[in-house]
Design a protein around this nucleic acid. Structure first.
Lengths: 222, 222
DNA sequence: ATTACTAAAAGACGAGTAA
DNA sequence: TTTACTCGTCTTTTAGTAA
């Protein structure tokens, strides 16, 4: 991991064209452009060279600096981060399924404070102690598989009373303007056509759902 | 100017979705993800808040952090830098003109060590002490005007023997695979249909040029 | 568990200097 | 002019602690 200051210097060199060719600079001119002393600039350049992020050719009147493949990789990693921040793919997925009676498993887990607390932290709502289970349409099963590529929120497991409570993951979504989340325990193997959903209220009541009612779940992920 | 470490933290928050909504984090979890102690993480968050780059809501079990408009601006500035590095526009310009006899002015300047040294530093060749002057085709005069928008390399002036030697600027280019540079003294007002070019060799001889010969100058700028 | 303080330890900075 | 060292100073970090 490259420290922030070194990365800043590397970027400055890249902006001067260092990725394409060796550029001339002196510690003084370089330092001035970064608001640091020539000594610090020199030290930073030495540090970048030691990390093999740049190559240098020292001359009596300055130095020629070029960015190595490793250096460019590092910059690209950084660039990729900014792309993730500002150019989210904003893919929108919709799952369609029918309400089914759950196994009561979800309700049980939602009653455990450790889990509830974590959901509360990461989601925008205080989870209602119960879940809505859906059996997906065949077409939605495909969509469901895609969702695994997105980055889910991790829920930590824990140990209490000599029992292990496993980890889980959840993905924020919406059902008819109600903020919800799909929840998947990491261990138990769910049938792939079933999803379990938590929300801030009792969805069955709020949306007047019965077993067999059709529901659309919208995932607007970036 | 935001310091590098603060920017790194701001970016980390943005990656967690901080630009879109308030996200939950604790100094410990945040610190671990950045390889810094919880104390430092806390201090950084305080620092970011003081700079109005984030807003915070402290809770007993952590804090909710959101990125302000100013914070997002700062990140976008950084993003723009990386775009400049990796997505250069790579515009290609071509000037066409006829060889003319220069005023000898160029040759004189190229004989002055202070100027020669600077050209040598910034360009990929050791400048030949002479220049090639071209009178541009009418169509190329338009192109020439566009070139002013690109970023030229600045050549410093200096004072010697009670005389002031002015500043100049140059733009790397190519004539038939010969690396060259267009040179423009900052003071003297050139006619806009004339360009003066330096290279690593005597272009007239190398390309067998006479007065009136047509020459193409290629500028591949990013 | 938190946040955020204080104080000791570590590390970075820049002046001075040599080559 | 450079680069890059040493060294004193100052800043930053982290451990410890309180709330």
């Amino acid at each position: 991991m490259v420290v922030a200051e070194d990365l800043q210097c590397l970027k400055a060199i890249a902006l001067l064209g260092g990725c394409r060719r060796a550029i001339w600079l002196s510690s003084q001119t370089f330092g001035r452009s970064l608001n640091i002393s020539p000594q610090t600039a020199s030290r930073r350049l030495i540090s970048l060279e030691r990390q093999q992020l740049i190559t240098r050719a020292i001359r009596p009147d300055g130095q020629y600096v070029g960015i190595t493949a490793r250096g460019e990789e590092e910059l690209k990693r950084e660039y990729a981060d900014y792309i993730r921040i500002f150019s989210p793919k904003r893919e929108r997925y919709v799952l369609t399924g029918a309400v089914i009676s759950g196994l009561g498993e979800g309700r049980y887990y939602m009653s455990i404070p450790h889990y509830r607390q974590q959901f509360e932290k990461h989601l925008q709502f205080e989870p209602f102690p119960g879940t809505l289970n859906l059996r997906l349409n065949p077409a939605s099963i495909q969509v469901r598989r895609h969702l695994d590529r997105l980055d889910w929120i991790d829920i930590d497991g824990f140990v209490a009373d000599n029992r292990t409570f496993g980890t889980a993951r959840c993905l924020p979504c919406r059902i008819a303007e109600h903020p919800c989340a799909i929840v998947v325990p990491s261990r138990s193997h769910y049938p792939e056509d079933v999803v379990e959903i938590i929300a801030g209220c009792e969805l069955r009541g709020a949306l007047n759902l019965k077993d067999g009612s059709t529901v659309e779940v919208e995932i607007a992920h970036d």
